[in-house]
C-alpha cells in the first residue's frame, strides 16, 4: 500500500485534522529546536510506534517509506563526517533529520491531503491557492491513470522494444499528455461552470470534534519531549 492509501484507511484519520497538524508541526519544530540526540531518538521511535500501533501501518511498509529519505540523510551524514570528523555532530544532525521526517510521516500517514487542505483553508491561505491545490491533487490521479493506459498501449505495440524506440515513445506520450490535459482543463472548467462555479472552489467543511483526551495526549507527548531534553540532555 502507498502512503496515500494508508492515510485514508488509518484509524487516526478520524481524529481532528487541525490537532494532528498542529501536533505534527510542533513536534517537528521542537525536535529541531531542542537540538538533542535523546529527543530526536524519542521522536523517531515514538512516531514509528504511533503510526504502526495506532495507525495500523505495517512495520515493513513504514521502514520502506523511511528508507528513501534515510538514504539521503545518511549520505549527507557521511559527507559531514568527512568534512568535520566530529562523530557527535554527525549523529546529532542525522538524528534530528530522521526525527523531523518521522514527525511529518505521522501527519502524512494519518491525514488525507483533502483534510490537510481544509486545515490550510482554516489558516486563511488564499482561496485561489487552495482551489488550485484541489484541482492539482485530483489531476495527479486522473493524468497518472491516462499515462498508465497509454504506457500499456504503447508497450503492447512494441513501443519499448529498444532504447531508441523507448525514447521516442516517451516523447510521444509526453506530448499527447500535454494536449490531453489541455482538453481536460477545458472540459473540467465547463463542468465546474455548469455547477455554478463563480471563481472560488468551496466544499462542505467536515466537522471533526476535538476530544479533550486527544489534546491531553498531544500535550503529554510534548511534555515528555521537554522532560527528556531536561534530564537526558
Amino acid at each position: 500500500m502507498g502512503m496515500e492509501h494508508y492515510a485514508y484507511v488509518s484509524p487516526l484519520r478520524h481524529k481532528n485534522a487541525c490537532l494532528k497538524t498542529t501536533f505534527g508541526i510542533t513536534v517537528l519544530v521542537c525536535g529541531l529546536a531542542m537540538d538533542s540526540i535523546a529527543v530526536s531518538l524519542w521522536i523517531t521511535v515514538s512516531m514509528m510506534g504511533i503510526s504502526v500501533i495506532w495507525g495500523k501501518v505495517r512495520l515493513y511498509d513504514y521502514i520502506r517509506f523511511l528508507a528513501m529519505p534515510l538514504f539521503f540523510i545518511l549520505f549527507g551524514g557521511g559527507a559531514l563526517f568527512f568534512a568535520t570528523e566530529d562523530m557527535r555532530l554527525v549523529l546529532l544532525v542525522t538524528l534530528r533529520a530522521v526525527g523531523a521526517v518521522s514527525a511529518f510521516y505521522f501527519l502524512t500517514l494519518s491525514t488525507p491531503v483533502g483534510e490537510l487542505m481544509a486545515v490550510l483553508r482554516k489558516c486563511h491561505v488564499p482561496p485561489v491557492l487552495i482551489g488550485l491545490m484541489y484541482l492539482l491533487y485530483r489531476d495527479i490521479f486522473v493524468l497518472t491513470g491516462v499515462w498508465q493506459s497509454m504506457f500499456t498501449a504503447a508497450q503492447s505495440r512494441l513501443g519499448y522494444a529498444d532504447y531508441r524506440t523507448s525514447l521516442r515513445t516517451f516523447g510521444g506520450i509526453g506530448s499527447n499528455l500535454l494536449l490531453l490535459s489541455w482538453k481536460r482543463a477545458d472540459d473540467c472548467y465547463h463542468a465546474m461552470e455548469a455547477r455554478g462555479y463563480e471563481g472560488t472552489i468551496c466544499f462542505l467543511e467536515r466537522r471533526q470534534s476535538c476530544r479533550w483526551y486527544d489534546v491531553l495526549a498531544a500535550a503529554g507527548y510534548i511534555a515528555v519531549m521537554a522532560a527528556i531534553r531536561r534530564f537526558c540532555g
Binding site: D187, A191, G196, F203, L204
Partner: peptide, 22 residues
C-alpha cells in the same frame, strides 16, 4: 466523462460543490 466533472478529494465534498455554489 465523470472524471472531467469530479474535482474534490472525497465523495462528500464532491457532491457538496454544487449546493455550496448555490
Amino acid at each position: 466523462d465523470a472524471d472531467s466533472q469530479i474535482i474534490a478529494p472525497s465523495v462528500r465534498e464532491e457532491i457538496s460543490f454544487g449546493p455550496m455554489n448555490l
